Amino acid sequence: MDKAYLIQLAASTAAVSVLVGLAAWAKIARPVGPLNLARAQDILAEEFPGRSLDQVWVATDGAGALARSGGMALVLCRVGDGFAARQIPWAQAVSSSFRNGRLRIDLSDISAPVATISLPSWPPKDLAA
C-alpha cells in the first residue's frame, strides 16, 4: 500500500463518518406517529385550504384518514415517512372495496396508487346522502 491510497482511504472514511453523523443529527427517516382526529384535520386543512370538512373518519391504526367535503373525498394515507393527501369523487370512495376491516381506495396515482384505511365498517351507518 502506498501513501496516496492510505490518504484516500482516510479521507473517504472521514467523509462517510460526517454523513452518518449528519443523518443521525437530522433524524432522517424518523417514524411517523399515528393520526388522530385533530392531526388529520390539521393536515387536511393544510393540504386543501378553503375546503370545509363535512365528516372525518380516522383509521383505527392511525395510518390514514378519509374526509367528506361536499361531493369530494379527501384521502390521507401513509407513504414513506409522511402522509399523501389525495382528492377523489365521493362516489368512488363510497363504492371502494371493504374487506376484513380494510377500505381499499384506488387513487390511480403513480406515487400513491392505493390507499388502505382500517375502519370498523364502510360505508358508515350515519352517512348522510
Rank of each mutant, 00 (worst) to 15 (best):
L9E: 15
G50C: 05
G80M: 11
L66G: 11
G33Y: 02
S96D: 12
S118Y: 01
T13S: 13
D109K: 03
P49T: 05
A73K: 00
Q55C: 06
F83C: 13
V20Y: 06
L107T: 07
Q41M: 14
S69Q: 03
L9G: 03
A112T: 12
L76K: 01
W90I: 01
R99K: 14
F48S: 03
I88D: 05
A59T: 09
P31A: 14
I110T: 08
A14Q: 14
S17W: 00
A91R: 15
P31V: 07
L19R: 14
I105M: 12
I117F: 03
W90L: 14
A14C: 07
V20P: 03
N36P: 03
V79R: 14
K27P: 00
G70Q: 04
I88G: 06
L107I: 08
I117E: 02
G21V: 02
P49S: 06
L9H: 11
I7F: 12
V75P: 01
V114A: 06
V16I: 13
S95M: 09
W25A: 15
N100R: 13
V20W: 09
L103S: 11
P31N: 13
D2W: 03
A38K: 09
N100D: 15
R39N: 08
P124M: 04
A38T: 14
G62L: 06
A26R: 13
D61S: 04
T116G: 02
S12V: 01
P113W: 04
D61N: 15
